[in-house]
Nucleic acid binder design. Structure first.
Length: 937
RNA sequence: GGGUGCUUAGCUCAGUCGGUAGAGCAUCGCCCUUACAAGGCGGGGGUCGACGGUUCGAGCCCGUCAGCACCCA
């Protein structure tokens, strides 16, 4: 065996074997278990969040596969309409070309090229991480079959009257020139201005103060070109009398009405609000109530269009703002400018301010109870069932409180705008004739037959594509063959669990539930495990622009500082941030990043996966788990060295020592805990339990305790120990395998045959389960006593600074019968682990020589001081111990002295307290006696 | 404005049933002892954000406040 663990070689050895052997495909004879991967966007490469999420899914998948379940992990990728189109457009721009230069067909070809590149990269990353997805079923949201499903999805909803086309105010991204949904708009707080303008009153009207104008306040002066009213609160004494009158809209020379509406906040600004129905959602609603005209003043790129006065036409919205303000000021109509904090709606993809904009779009009805024709509306048919699925427990969120987020959103849901003015995506299956009639069916031929259209009637397909989420919302269905009733669909739908981040509960999770129920009558998954976000060590979100991203494979393989700097500083949207990024990177990773291997990285993710919490990624954790892998490697090396071909008669009679029975007993408890942690998705506790058991119990204590046995000459005991070493190790490897697949497979291949196991791979071996009958409390108590005894001796040695090479004499005073019996049985272990001579029990009344002392219950462990021990050091040690004991004892005495405690606490607590006090008093007496003796020297 | 989560050792975090606070990393001392120096052995380090309440007893339950993060409007 190689001396140290080399993750690279191991990973390379197993990756291909697993996949080419077909072991990732469903095959168990047990119950179906399935996980649908949240399909990564084909926008580039996978980041730490993906690696984290995939670790969890793979751990679950491997666990259930090992349990014999018929396990499917469905892989695939998402075409991610806007996001991918943007990436390709950016690349074109670098080459001096553009989407419009190429035209739709050529552009889409380019995107497919990119998709191939990005998709391959992503697949490769998934493979490298050891993710056991069933590649034979890999899917893409624009595969032909998938596309059919998307069309079916739309047509069915349309046939049920749940899809409509309408002219509505939508969020318009003037850079991408497409509508986007509410969810794709983020509100950002910015410092802005509040401009106050004078609008002259028409018809000689006057305010209460005798002014011939009113003042309106606005954060968006340019929209006044589209104003069609001024609104005041109907109860506002200042303006009440003006309602029904008009103002002369400056610059446009239109007269617009003054209306009263209680939407107006009297406290805000002047209490007079300009109303622009075409460019503000609230104004639009108010306009509808007052039947105001709607004047759209923007082009699709948010420049001023021909509806506005000639002077402003063609100006960009921000340019127009300056001009409007300047012109009003020139006319003496600018009253004042205040600083103002405002919320700006920003497109989450383009990063620019989006405009409320009036266009024709397709919507999914999610809000109507009943349709005009009496059929159920979207609220009844789609939204309510999705709420009920979680309320009624058909779907369970883990952690549970995410269901509140889910409910809140669904209960306040708006109709969903699903059309996008993009080129990359599923073309909407709707056709128009020259008269603007709309026909919806699966294809043009079906349109003609369905609507009985003449063969020569010219039809034009809708240019728009679907919102990406309108295709990913059927991911659990379409990947299994829906709308066809395939065997896979029957078996693996609903999937067992969805593993996802909270950021897409609305975008994706809720929509899958809605559509799964609507289209297939059942929920898409039984549980939703919601994990946190991966952040950097400072708690910042990782992003390219912040320069703090980590490529998971750079942790796996390691990366030099120079390489890392290059990666982080090239291709930045804002190249001027490069020096700052460089500085921060040099600070965080002065020597680059050391390779830790896949297993360690996965284990790190698991250990950090505490529920309801974001994760600060800390490299030192990964390094620690790399060491853990090495520890397992070396422990295996020891076991093999001592077990391989060591026993000519391995099946012979075996006697199990206390240590053997102890580790077997402990193993049962660990197995039970592991099962519990998997069930509750506590990968952090799982990793901790296994780490603790392997390192602190198996390696630190058990392996050490086997040494004297294996050096001894009791064949039966040696055989028992070898057998236990092997069997426990083999079990440990299986326990760890879902979290660290590579090293466990590699080691299992060597260990399993010796442990009497056969099989081509660990990944299809049964996951260990506890056998309660092997729990041995007596052996556990023996070993706990032994550990305490050994610790006592070691504390003396360490406290006295005695070299580990010196074999110490050892005396024991005041040993109880049970202690004496244990000493007799376990002396070999004590001697081996502490390098002492055989302990000698002092007879009753026998005066011991002056010694350094450790207490174990009522028993004193003594190391005679002659020639070995520093008087002052021992005194210091004893006094420290005494101080601790005194302080604890004082606390406990105070508690027992409290009447309230004595009267109120249950008897068992009081009993425990009394025992504790008695022990501490005894200990204190012993310490005092010992201190006195040494002081007297 | 409404909501959620967080605040525990120098750092990153566990803490289940309310019963004397744990891990990893870092740190200090000794040790290259035949599985492992990516290691072994031993040690130090905490007013559990603040205040109040419930309780015999609170890191944990309740309330108020502060700070941080996120979500929604």
């Amino acid at each position: 065996m190689e001396k140290t663990f080399d993750p690279r070689a191991i990973e390379a050895r197993w990756r291909d074997t697993w996949e080419s052997s077909g072991w990732f495909a469903p095959q168990g004879s047990g119950a179906p278990y399935s996980i649908m991967i949240p399909p990564p966007n084909v926008t580039g490469t996978l980041h730490m969040g993906h690696a984290f999420q995939h670790t969890i899914m793979d751990a679950l998948t491997r666990y259930h596969r090992m349990r014999g379940d018929d396990t499917l992990w469905q892989p695939g990728t998402d075409h991610a309409g806007i996001a991918t189109q943007m990436v390709v457009e950016r690349n074109l721009k670098l080459q001096g070309s553009s989407r419009l230069d190429l035209g739709r067909e050529k552009f889409v070809e380019k995107v497919w090229e990119w998709k191939k590149y990005s998709g391959d990269t992503i697949e490769n990353q998934i493979r490298r991480m050891g993710s056991s997805v069933d590649w034979s079923r890999k899917a893409f949201t624009m595969d032909p079959g998938y596309s059919e499903a998307v069309i079916e999805h739309f047509v069915r909803l349309h046939e049920d009257g749940l899809i409509y086309r309408g002219k509505r105010l939508v969020n318009w991204d003037p850079v991408l020139q497409t509508a986007i949904s509410d969810l794709e708009v983020v509100q950002e707080e910015k410092d802005g201005k509040l401009w106050h303008f004078r609008y002259p009153l028409a018809g000689g009207a006057k305010t209460q103060d005798g002014l011939d104008y009113i003042v309106v306040a606005t954060t968006r002066p340019e929209t006044m070109l589209g104003d069609t009213a001024v609104a005041v609160h109907p109860e506002d004494e200042r303006y009440k009398h003006l309602i029904g009158g008009k103002v002369k809209l400056p610059l446009s020379d239109r007269e617009i009405p003054i209306v009263g509406d209680d939407y107006v906040d009297r406290e805000f600004g002047t209490g007079c609000v300009k109303i622009t129905p075409a460019h503000d959602f609230n104004d639009y609603a108010l306009g509808q109530r007052h039947k105001l005209p709607v004047i759209n003043i923007f082009t699709p790129t948010a420049a001023i269009n021909d509806e506005a006065p000639a002077a402003y036409r063609g100006l960009d919205r921000f340019e127009a703002r300056k001009r409007v303000v300047a012109d009003l000021e020139a006319q003496g109509l600018l009253a004042k400018i205040d600083d103002h904090k405002l919320k700006l709606p920003i497109g989450d993809r383009s990063g620019v301010v989006v405009e409320p904009y009036l266009t024709d779009q397709w919507f999914v009805d999610l809000t109507r109870k009943t349709l005009d024709d009496g059929r159920p509306g979207g609220r009844t048919a789609i939204t309510e069932p999705a709420i009920q699925a979680v309320e009624g427990g058909s779907i369970k969120f883990v952690p549970e409180n995410w269901s509140n987020t889910y409910f809140h959103w669904l209960r306040n849901i708006q109709d969903w705008c699903i059309s996008r003015q993009l080129w990359w995506g599923h073309r909407i299956p709707a056709w128009y004739d020259a008269d603007g009639n709309i026909y919806v069916a699966r294809n043009e031929a079906e349109v003609r037959s369905k609507y009985k259209l003449a063969a020569d009637l010219a039809l034009r397909q809708d240019e728009d594509v679907f919102d990406t989420w309108f295709s990913s919302d059927i991911w659990p269905l379409a990947t299994l063959g829906w709308p066809r009733e395939t065997p896979e669909l029957k078996k693996f739908y609903p999937s067992s669990v969805l593993v996802t981040g909270f950021d897409i509960i609305f975008f994706w999770v809720a929509r899958m539930v809605m559509m799964g129920l609507k289209l297939h009558g059942d929920v898409p998954f039984r549980e939703v495990y919601v994990h946190g976000l991966i952040r950097d060590s400072e708690g910042q979100k990782m992003s390219k622009s912040k320069g703090n991203v980590l490529d998971p494979l750079d942790l796996v393989d390691g990366i030099s500082l120079d390489e890392l700097l290059k990666k982080r500083t090239t291709g930045l949207m804002k190249p001027e941030t490069a020096p700052k990024i460089e500085k921060a990177t040099r600070k965080d990773y002065p020597a680059g990043i050391e390779a830790v291997g896949v297993d360690a990285l996965r284990y790190t993710f698991a250990s950090l996966a505490s529920p309801g919490r974001d994760i600060r990624f800390d490299f030192s954790r990964a390094a620690g788990y790399r060491n853990f892998c090495n520890k397992i490697w070396n422990a295996t090396s020891y076991v093999l060295m001592n077990c391989e071909e060591q026993d000519p008669n391995p099946d012979g009679q075996a006697w199990l020592s206390e240590a053997d029975r102890w580790i077997i007993s402990r193993l049962q408890k660990v197995e039970a805990e592991a099962a519990e942690h998997f069930k509750t998705y506590r990968f952090d506790l799982l990793s901790q339990t296994l780490y603790q058991f392997v390192w602190n119990e198996y390696c630190d204590w058990y392996l050490e305790l086997t040494k004297p046995t294996l050096r001894g000459d009791n064949d039966s005991a040696k055989r028992g120990t070898r057998r236990t070493l092997l069997r426990v190790l083999e079990t440990i490897l299986r326990l760890l395998h879902p979290l660290m697949p590579f090293v466990t497979e590699d080691l299992w291949q060597r260990v399993a045959p010796l442990a009497g196991k056969t099989g081509k791979t660990i990944m299809l071996q049964p996951y260990p389960t506890a056998q309660p009958e092997k729990i041995d409390e007596a052996a556990e108590a023996d070993v706990e006593w032994l550990k305490a005894f050994i610790l006592g001796v070691r504390q003396i040695r360490s406290g006295m600074d005695i070299s580990p090479k010196i074999t110490l004499p050892l005396l024991v005073q005041d040993a109880a019968t049970a202690d004496a019996e244990r000493i007799a049985r376990l002396a070999g272990s004590i001697m081996a682990l502490t390098n002492v001579q055989e302990p000698r029990l002092l007879a009753v009344g026998e005066e011991p020589p002056v010694s350094a002392t450790s207490l174990l219950g009522s028993m004193k462990i003594l190391v005679p001081m002659a020639g070995l021990i520093d008087k002052e050091a021992e005194l210091a040690r004893l006094r420290k111990k005494k101080a601790q004991t005194e302080s604890d004892l004082a606390k406990n005495l105070a508690r027992m002295g409290s009447e309230k405690f004595v009267n109120g606490a249950p008897p068992e607590v009081l009993e425990r307290e009394r025992t504790r006090i008695a022990q501490q008093q005894q200990e204190l007496a012993a310490l005092n006696e010992q201190i006195g003796k040494i002081e007297a020297l």
